[in-house]
Nucleic acid binder design. Structure first.
Lengths: 110, 110
DNA sequence: CCGTATCCCTAATGATACTG
DNA sequence: CAGTATCATTAGGGATACGG
């Protein structure tokens, strides 16, 4: 761990383009692979797989395969992943508030 | 804004390798350029400049030049930047807690 | 002291086609 | 439905040398 800042450690776990979004949508509960993917419309097939694989490797989500046809796979947050909930919500909230304040600024200027 | 998630908006503002660290260190107050840079030892000259420029452009920090020799430049958080304080501290806190819990796990396993 | 300008490398992301 | 493989592109990052 460099920079002796736990902050960096956290960013390395969730600080990518897609991870926060995937985690955020899983706050609702377990989701089937296709459903989860549709919640992040712009994500490519490759990046979706890569993202969930890494999140699984890091123990933030779990993957459950149902032995049925057609295949069915569900992803859900692990306990460790759930511990990110308040952080994820705060990230979302800050963005929302910031956008709102920007709008106010624009309105005032016009 | 894509994915209609403010979360993403936030990540685009601070979700890079160095921005969170720079912002975090500025929570203490204004810092002279060289001092701030030393707080992030591994950062290259180029990335430091690039990082503070972008943070300034996004209105999260401000840059003050003192007309003296040798040159003196100070960076500090803007009001908008300061609004990130609790978020930054929570990022740091989560990492710290997670590292601790990992250590416990390891100890238990040994 | 502070910052810019180059050059270079690697990791991250994306489009497309294909398999069990 | 879920996932893999491949190829191509770009963005992020770093080393070094130079300039006000």
């Amino acid at each position: 761990m460099k920079n002796n800042c736990p902050l960096n450690y956290t960013m390395q776990l969730i600080g990518t383009k897609w991870k926060p979004l995937v985690l955020f949508h899983l706050l609702e509960g377990a989701l089937r692979s296709g459903v989860l993917k549709k919640k992040v419309p712009e994500i490519s097939n490759k990046m979706f797989t890569q993202t969930v694989r890494e999140l699984e490797k890091d123990g933030l989500i779990s993957r459950k395969v149902f032995p049925v046809v057609p295949p069915k796979v569900e992803y859900k947050l692990t306990e460790r992943g759930e511990s990110l909930e308040s952080l994820l919500r705060q990230l979302d909230k800050w963005g929302l508030e910031d956008i709102k304040s920007l709008n106010h600024t624009n309105f005032d200027a016009l």
